[in-house]
């Protein structure tokens, strides 16, 4: 096991992503952050609070559970469904930024796009991920990345967040193939 991001690394990465989001969207007025449970939801919260600190305004932030939209439900034991909370103003004509911890095959994001499509029609949908470990199976790309981590497929990336795990850390487990 090797540590890829320490707690300060994570903090810096999220701060940078926050600035990049503001820069790309020319401010915070139209953005809605939607975190993908479980860890993506906490990351979205953190980004929202960093942005509101910078801009001095409340940021719309919610969660988007994609369990019911997965394309591999036949293959996996049924997973508990996590809450989906969309800010009261909705997503119509907003710039939605999906937030997840690890970007891997891209299938989660595809499911998230399907889930989002059922909720409304944002002006744009963007993607922020704390880690991009490669091995995409779909034509999906992140707009904001905390760190690109080259991994082999047999390895696994473990993200710890203080809200759930008591501390912040990203590590890689297993041998590089």
């Amino acid at each position: 096991m090797s540590v890829a991001l320490s707690a300060p690394d994570i903090k810096r990465a999220l701060t940078r992503i926050s600035h990049e989001i503001l820069e790309k969207n020319q401010g915070a007025s139209s953005i809605v952050l939607l975190g993908i449970p479980t860890r993506g939801a906490h990351l979205a919260q953190r980004i929202a609070s960093i942005i509101s600190e910078i801009e001095g305004v409340e940021i719309s932030c919610g969660t988007l559970d994609i369990t019911l939209f997965r394309d591999d439900l036949r293959l996996r034991a049924p997973k508990a469904i996590m809450p989906t909370t969309i800010p009261p103003s909705g997503v119509e004509n907003c710039d939605v930024i999906l937030v997840d911890d690890v970007l891997f095959s891209g299938r989660t994001i595809r499911s998230a796009l399907d889930a989002l499509g059922e909720i409304g029609r944002p002006r744009t949908v963007q993607l922020a991920a704390l880690v991009d470990r490669g091995h995409r199976e779909l034509p999906i790309k992140a707009d904001f990345v905390g760190k690109n981590l080259p991994t082999s497929k047999s390895q696994s990336v473990r993200v710890l967040l203080s809200e759930i795990d008591g501390r912040d850390e990203v590590s890689i487990e297993g041998e590089a193939g």
């Binding site: 559970d65 019911l68 939209f69 439900l73 049924p78 508990a80 469904i81 996590m82 809450p83 989906t84 969309i86 399907d114 059922e118 909720i119 409304g120």
Partner: peptide
């Protein structure tokens, strides 16, 4: 609990899920 989440989804804008 699952029913609870599904009820919330159905209460909102989503009337149809691709799950099955």
């Amino acid at each position: 609990d699952t029913a609870n989440e599904l009820a919330r989804v159905s209460d909102g804008a989503v009337k149809k899920l691709p799950t099955l």
